[in-house]
Design a protein around this nucleic acid. Structure first.
Ligand code: MN
Ligand code: MN
Ligand code: ZN
Ligand code: ZN
Lengths: 161, 161
DNA sequence: AATATTTTGCAACATTGTTGCATTGCATTA
DNA sequence: TAATGCAATGCAACAATGTTGCAAAATATT
């Protein structure tokens, strides 16, 4: 139950109006819009997310980056991105938390990741099904829902042949 | 997969027909019905689940049991129970997998835990909402669902005053 | 009771995550 | 652009979690 609640004004994340930005520019853009100083580690880690179609676990980033930066830096960077609403976590039952980019309407302290996630049992890829929203669940009396996480597992379209 | 066909409707693991069994008897009963040898560790760990109203994490069991048995034994026992369909895992976003008793229609290799789970943000208790089933989710073309995990978090009825 | 089979404890190791602190790098202002 | 203040990083040390092989102990079977 450790939750850093930094409240900042709502800012948009992934897209910038009126231009097709280069990835590198978009990366810097996202960091600056979230009042984060632009460092090598943050740029690299954010790039991994932008260039990946699936979610990433800490270990994925650690393996991809090799010795480029410290493990601790990855942990701290991921936490910072979550706090700012740049990425969100995806619950799993396999002790490997995954992270994925948030959509525009997420901001510091307030995530809007009410979409369905899909984990492929075969290739292991975790997808954000951004356009499939989580249905409302009617709970027993006295229970108050704060957030709903829905993860479907099975075979993804790439593996399904 | 030899499952003894229980005729009575919806018999749960916690009760046995035609008698009010002592907990100890019920524990031995469950183990034997799953072709598991009856050992001290298994009896104790199963008892924790029977006497708990919420789900348990590995650490919960480790702390409760003290030095009674080895950590490794707990890991192996939990895995055995999952394999046999006695307990099921509950996915979380905090890297602390929890386990809860399965209902009767779970057996080795085939879980039927298609019910909603609830995690209280305040007291940390994880509930199985056995009577609330997970709604079907229509996926994009090519995706095939195998299992759906739905976890609601918020405030539970005990904490909600 | 003797034997065959499983389970357990232990040790050793691997992976994952956290914290404090000195050093480095970034951003701001002069 | 250079100086300065603050934030981020690397490193070390540690804690927590999870895995494996193997000998000893417990359980089930005969
Ligand atoms: Mn997502
Ligand atoms: Mn359950
Ligand atoms: Zn796949
Ligand atoms: Zn509660």
């Amino acid at each position: 139950m450790k939750k850093t609640a930094v409240v900042l004004p709502m800012v948009s994340l992934r897209t910038t109006p009126n231009s097709v930005m280069e990835t590198q520019e978009r990366i810097v853009d996202i960091l600056k819009k979230n009042s984060l100083s632009v460092t090598d580690s943050r740029k690299k880690i954010l790039r991994y997310f932008l260039e990946s179609d699936g979610a990433l676990a800490h270990a994925d980033i650690e393996h991809q980056s090799g010795t480029e930066f410290d493990r601790v830096t990855i942990y701290r960077t991921l936490q910072t991105f979550v706090d700012k609403g740049i990425i969100h976590t995806i619950p799993t039952a396999d002790n490997a938390v995954r992270y994925a980019l948030c959509k525009d309407d997420c901001y510091a302290g307030h995530h809007h990741d009410d979409h369905v996630h899909f984990m492929c049992d075969q290739c292991g890829t975790t997808y954000c099904l951004d356009h499939i929203t989580v249905p409302g669940i009617s709970l027993p009396a006295g229970f108050k829902a704060q957030q709903t996480d829905l993860v479907v597992s099975g075979i993804c379209s790439k593996c399904n042949n």
